[in-house]
Design a protein around this nucleic acid. Structure first.
Length: 941
RNA sequence: GCUCGAGUGGUGGAAUUGGUAGACACGUUGGACUUAAAAUCCAAUGACCAUUGCGGUCGUGCGGGUUCAAGUCCCGCCUCGAGUACCA
């Protein structure tokens, strides 16, 4: 019987669906295991062969865990809110929900074809009201919480209000805005509700704030930093300006330390942890106050090098710093104002491409050194960022390269506070070997001691404090878009109010158009029915807004990461209407055991999701502070483009081998050709071009002529991102059609290590395809004979290898060992049930369809999916004889054959007795014979 | 610039973590079976030298080092990839 993969695969996919083979139990005596993929955004283009790589890996692992007797949760859903569907809506008027519907259906079809063991009963989309209801609820929880630094967790805002009423905010150790004033309980009670709310906003974990944002007038929206490339929008390339706007913000900074500490408790790739650590950017140092000469004001600076405080020779403020106008002298005013104006005009583009340009202006003001009392000139310069630290730096040119460059450029003094170090050419930034000099009470101290001494002294004299600073900022949470979660918020007197939880979800309204309104309001400004009737508790027509009982609703929507910051919990209990996830269910499933996805989410999704999880854990909604124990970043599968070479100004194409890539004087030097990409579908396994196919592919090739080598046209190959415009996209459906889903799965794994990026080349799939055919053949004549020792050996070698590979996620080499196994069994003519039964289970995670079919062929009843994994028995691998390679001084080699369990002495004896040894040693006694049992014998002469 | 990661045949990649480098696969060459092609099967395949023999030399980006033994460890370079962008 032939191996008809199309028939077999369809049959088993149907069987799995009908029998719910992969449905996870919410309560089970079995140990649980949760395998999760980063769920996809269903784009209109569908899947190419690069997309399922991670899904295949996680599926293999999920299936392996089922064989090991685990109750496996392996769900899939869609992250369906997002910009492309909205852009499509703007262009075509097609409702994004409709587009999403079509795209998810197409994704589902493609995913099903590959034979994943997802529990589809748990599927959801982030754009479904029944799901985003819970996103809205978490938002409300955040609004109603503050961060208590003493308890080191989030607490209810009612606790805070109670405290304010009792004793004001003087004793509260909270993570709040820097400018929060101190007040007493009496002062609090006398405040208006509005004033109270304004104060509470400084504590809430999500709050409204005037934030300087990247506003793109053309797109009518705020853009995140990563949506701006070279100062223009990533989409469309429109100009972007900085503008202050009222935006929802997430107080993620409250969790900075916990997010940092949590990293040590999870098994995530080090580079990913590094980039999160980097992003959080914790730095320890001191805040130092400098008195402005002739003013009341103090200027505070943050520094990580308080040990170099005596090296300060000037101070630099960000041009936007609050005190700049106040302290600037009349003589300098014109220059300073001109400079400020100039920097404000400089776009992001200029600032980025011009990093090396040194600019600044002297304010005319001086501050006094806190210890020496020296007069220190105050400058402004755009290398100082308003948003980091205090927006001011104490410049120590001898110890910081930027300060050094600034000092050189403006001819400022560069005092040296390091012993025996030259600062002739550049600043000295090495902390390890520093000994401080010319620094009063710090002289002779090393870096660490000097730093501590200085901080102690600053604190004792009230001139500063030790301080920890973070690069991490609170996360802007508002987007001026339509296709996202609506905020459960309405406004009374301009102050935000949360909708009652009982009315959630607040569903996205219909709009007439998906663009911002003329007034610049977000698209929800176009909605007709979008006001809140607080009396009747329902959404009503905007025309009815009277600000008495009927109020405006929030017009912004939530950003893309809102929906993906908790979906992993939702899969544990996807149909729960009242809460995100049932307490008992989350207590059973706990968290994700294995999470697989791309590294592009290192500091967005993966950081925000950790933040929400920590918060939800504080509230007792989930059982673990970290949502994913182990994470693997799968590499990208790149495309292998096919290139034809057209001689310039002709329609003649030369085969790749005829082109000279080196000699620029050669007639066929590459520069005399144009490189054109052609569809990779026209290339066979030996890089040969189907010329007739090409002529029919595009009209420009119809009457082309070809210069061949060995009667063939060979194309050039280049590794590039898989993309339609390079004609190198390979569709998984087509591969499944031609070679089968099992071949696709095996080949994707076989291509190389999971984490690495590697090019797809369809030609190579014949290898795994051949393997499947051979495997199939083995089961044609199953018998009950006793297998040979060799057959047992290869089986158990394979069990060991495959199990080790699965546990270490090196799936690529498993495929190799399957091939070796099948080749050996074929040449041994081994068709024994004793071998073939465990082999089918071994193969089953990788190639599940054929495994199921083979299992039935052996006379078993379905399904193989929950059969116990074969047990490895080392005794089958014991050899009776073994070859021992022998080397002299690590060079000359020969082999001796001995019994496999030969002792060290026996090996040594045999080596010395060997005729070659005697000859090569020429009578000289060896100094040492080193025997590494089972490996190698080494003779030192 | 800084922080990670990687350099192994014509190609994708193995190498039990210091122990016979190149497993497995693609491609290539030769052969078998076919009227022929496809499919399948067999053999060879790192380079160079020797080939009527079993052999020899060189080989894991480059230069040093440690070791009986280095793709693997240490020092210094080069190249490529990813992330980040003046973070005081």
């Amino acid at each position: 019987m032939n191996y008809n993969f199309n028939e077999i695969e369809a049959k088993w996919q149907r069987y799995w669906a009908e029998n719910e083979t992969f449905k996870a139990e919410d309560h089970s005596a079995k140990p649980k295991y949760y395998v999760l993929d980063m769920f996809p955004y269903p784009s209109g283009a569908g899947l190419h062969v690069g997309h399922p790589l991670g899904y295949i890996a996680s599926d293999i692992y999920a299936r392996f865990k089922r064989h090991q007797g685990y109750n496996v949760l392996h769900p899939m859903g869609y992250d369906s809110f997002g910009l492309p569907a909205e852009q499509y809506a703007i262009q075509t008027g097609q409702h994004p929900a409709k587009t999403t519907e079509v795209n998810t259906a197409r994704y589902r079809e493609q995913l099903d074809r590959i034979g994943f063991s997802f529990d589809w009963s748990r599927q959801f989309k982030t754009s479904e009201p029944s799901y985003y209801k819970h996103t809205q609820m978490i938002f409300i929880h955040l609004f109603n919480s503050w961060y208590d630094k003493d308890a080191d967790k989030a607490r209810s805002i009612t606790d805070l209000v109670a405290c304010f009423e009792k004793e004001g905010n003087g004793s509260v150790n909270a993570h709040s805005d820097e400018d929060t004033p101190i007040f007493t309980s009496e002062e609090w009670k006398e405040m208006s509700t509005e004033a109270q709310e304004d104060l509470l906003q400084k504590y809430r974990l999500t709050y409204l704030a005037d934030i300087e944002v990247n506003w793109c007038p053309e797109l009518g929206t705020v853009l995140a930093n990563d949506e701006i490339i070279n100062g223009v929008s990533e989409r469309g390339g429109h100009p972007v300006v900085r503008k202050k706007m009222k935006q929802w913000s997430m107080r993620i900074t409250a969790y900075a330390d916990r997010l940092l500490e949590g990293l040590s408790t999870i098994d995530w790739p080090q580079p990913l942890k590094d980039s999160q650590t980097n992003w959080i950017g914790r730095s320890e140092g001191a805040e130092v106050s400098f008195q402005v000469e002739g003013h009341q004001e103090l200027i505070k600076v943050f520094t990580t090098r308080p040990d170099t405080l005596f090296g300060v020779s000037f101070m630099t403020l960000a041009p936007e710093h609050d005190l700049v106008t106040k302290i600037t002298t009349d003589a300098q005013r014109a220059e300073v104002e001109a400079y400020i104006e100039e920097t404000a005009k400089r776009s992001e583009l200029d600032r980025m491409s011009d990093v090396k340009r040194i600019t600044g202006a002297f304010t005319g003001a001086y501050v006094l050194h806190p210890f020496s009392g020296d007069r220190i000139p105050v400058w402004i310069g755009d290398y100082v960022l308003a948003s980091y630290g205090t927006g001011a730096v104490m410049a120590v040119p001898c110890g910081d390269q930027r300060d050094y460059d600034f000092a050189k450029h403006f001819n400022l003094s560069i005092p040296n506070v390091f012993e025996g170090v030259s600062i002739e050419d550049e600043a000295f930034t090495d902390k390890g070997t520093t000994i401080i000099a010319n620094s009063d009470f710090l002289n002779g101290l090393d870096y660490a001691t000097a730093k501590r001494t200085m901080i102690d002294r600053l604190e004792a004299e009230g001139k500063g404090t030790g301080k920890v600073n973070y690069r991490l900022r609170d996360a802007v949470f508002s987007r001026q878009r339509y296709w996202g979660e609506p905020f459960p918020v309405y406004y009374v007197n301009g102050r935000p109010q949360m909708l009652p939880e009982s009315v959630l979800p607040l569903e996205l309204p219909e709009v007439t158009q998906y663009l911002p309104t003329e007034k610049g309001d977000p698209p929800l400004g176009n909605a007709k029915i979008w006001a809140w009737d607080a009396v009747n508790q329902k959404v009503v027509d905007v025309d009815l807004i009277d600000h008495q009982t009927i109020f405006p609703l929030e017009l912004n929507t939530m950003p893309g990461w809102a929906g993906s910051s908790q979906y992993f919990n939702r899969f544990m209990d996807p149909h729960n209407e009242t809460q995100l996830v049932d307490k008992e269910k989350v207590a059973y499933w706990k968290g994700v055991d294995l999470y697989i996805g791309g590294s592009e989410h290192a500091v967005t999704h993966l950081l925000y999701a950790r933040f929400w999880q920590h918060f939800m854990h504080d509230l007792g909604l989930v059982s673990q502070p970290e949502f994913a124990k182990k994470l693997i970043n799968q590499g990208m599968i790149t495309g292998l483009s096919a290139i034809v070479y057209r001689k310039s100004k002709t329609n003649t194409y030369y085969s790749h081998g005829l082109i000279d890539f080196k000699d620029s004087s050669a007639e066929n030097y590459i520069d005399h050709f144009e490189k054109l990409r052609v569809d990779v579908g026209l290339i066979n396994s030996s890089d040969e071009l189907d010329i007739e196919g090409l002529k029919n592919w595009q009209p420009q090739y119809a009457d082309a002529s070809f210069v061949l080598e060995k009667d063939r046209y060979i194309v050039g190959r280049e590794v590039e991102k898989m993309s339609k415009r390079w004609y190198n996209v390979v569709n998984p459906d087509q591969i499944c059609e031609e070679y089968g889903a099992d071949a696709l799965r095996l080949y994707e794994m076989f291509l190389g290590p999971l984490e690495q990026s590697k090019p797809w080349n369809t030609a190579g799939i014949t290898g795994v395809s051949g393997f499947l055919k051979k495997l199939w053949k083995l089961y044609d004549s199953v018998n009950d004979e006793n297998p040979s020792a060799e057959s047992f050996k290869v089986l158990h070698k394979t069990i060991k290898k495959v199990q080790d590979d699965l546990e270490s996620f090196s799936f690529n080499t498993s495929v190799s060992s399957f091939m070796i196994c099948v080749n050996t069994l074929t040449s041994e003519k081994c068709f024994s049930r004793q071998i073939l039964e465990p082999l089918a289970i071994l193969v089953s995670p990788y190639a599940p369809h054929i495994a199921e079919e083979l299992w039935v062929k052996l006379g078993n009843s379905p399904s193989i999916a929950h059969q116990p994994f074969p047990v490895f028995d080392a005794s089958y691998l014991v050899e009776s004889e073994k070859e021992y390679p022998v080397s002299f001084n690590g060079k000359m080699r020969f082999k001796i054959t001995l019994s496999a369990d030969a002792s060290k002495d026996e090996i040594e004896k045999a080596v010395m007795a060997h005729e070659k040894t005697a000859e090569q040693l020429k009578g000289a006694a060896p100094k040492k014979v080193i025997v590494v049992p089972g490996k190698i014998v080494n003779i030192v002469v």
